[in-house]
Nucleic acid binder design. Structure first.
Lengths: 153, 153
DNA sequence: AGCGACTACATCGCGCACGATTTAATCGCG
DNA sequence: CGCGATTAAATCGTGCGCGATGTAGTCGCT
């Protein structure tokens, strides 16, 4: 974008651009399956770890209810999953896969390799990158929370 | 999120989460100014480099017309900029700052430092991170373009 | 000059993100 | 037990992101 910005603002722009570019790769792969990237993340959780409450998905994917609620509704409408109120706590909703939802997993078999190829970085670089991103996200999230509670500077 | 995914898919998730966390920091900073992060990026370009055509903004911010067109319309509606058809090429639209748009720059003086603090990484790490992200984005964009033109595997 | 290809931009539709608000169920504490 | 506080989830509104489509304006080629 630029050359005279402070380093951290340039980084943020690169992060923003990189994230969108990765999503666009997922789009190419997932569109034939009728899934978006966030939807794929939900399906991944269910395939790997079985039934989850909406709250667990919120925590694990770091998305909000207001993003997940309609997203789950769409996945349910497509017949991939079912939402069921918990009998022991009527506030909670358990999300569970249908047979069709389970069957879809097979069609995603080649996704990880395709992503790995598209990224084109070797594992050592990826590991470093990942650690830096996690630190960054953790710092930023904490900072944002703190800043918005403190009205004053 | 997980521990048994291939490394590159985990990285993508971290990238996605990190990008949103950074945006949330910008939100805290920019909301009092009535700007979103993408809007701030446009204003940055205009503050630093002066008048731009829509096409130049598309290229420099790597956003599409269908994202920028309504965004610029909103900024124009707020009186921060003006859109003007070029006389020499009636297809092009030049975007230029109003006095109010120029005046807004001063209120963003503390943003870079606040971002730097929120990120909480030292410059060496940031530089590495940035290079990896640029390589990744460049690879991914090329790959996505290639994959979608090739219908066959 | 004429016409097809290309370009710059706009518009539409859909699915996120996310702040704000609402509803219903459960918990905690006197 | 009763009632205020908390929690889980849903809904609404706004602004991206982006595929698909539409519309002028310009270029290239004969």
């Amino acid at each position: 974008m630029d050359s005279e910005s402070p380093l951290s603002e340039l980084l943020c722009f690169d992060l923003y651009a990189a994230s969108r570019s990765v999503t666009s790769v997922y789009r190419v792969l997932l569109d034939p399956l009728g899934l978006t990237y966030p939807q794929y993340l939900v399906m991944l959780m269910l395939w790997r770890h079985g039934d989850r409450t909406v709250r667990e998905l919120v925590d694990e994917l770091r998305l909000d209810y207001n993003t997940l609620s309609p997203l789950l509704k769409r996945l349910e409408a497509r017949g991939l999953l079912e939402r069921r109120r918990r009998p022991d706590d009527e506030r909670s909703v358990t999300v569970l896969l249908t047979d069709e939802g389970r069957a879809l997993q097979e069609k995603t078999r080649d996704v990880p390799k395709a992503i790995s190829d598209a990224i084109g970085l070797d594992d050592a670089v990826i590991a470093d990158l990942q650690e830096a991103l996690r630190t960054l996200a953790s710092n930023a999230t904490a900072h944002a929370a703190h800043m918005s509670t403190n009205t004053a500077k």
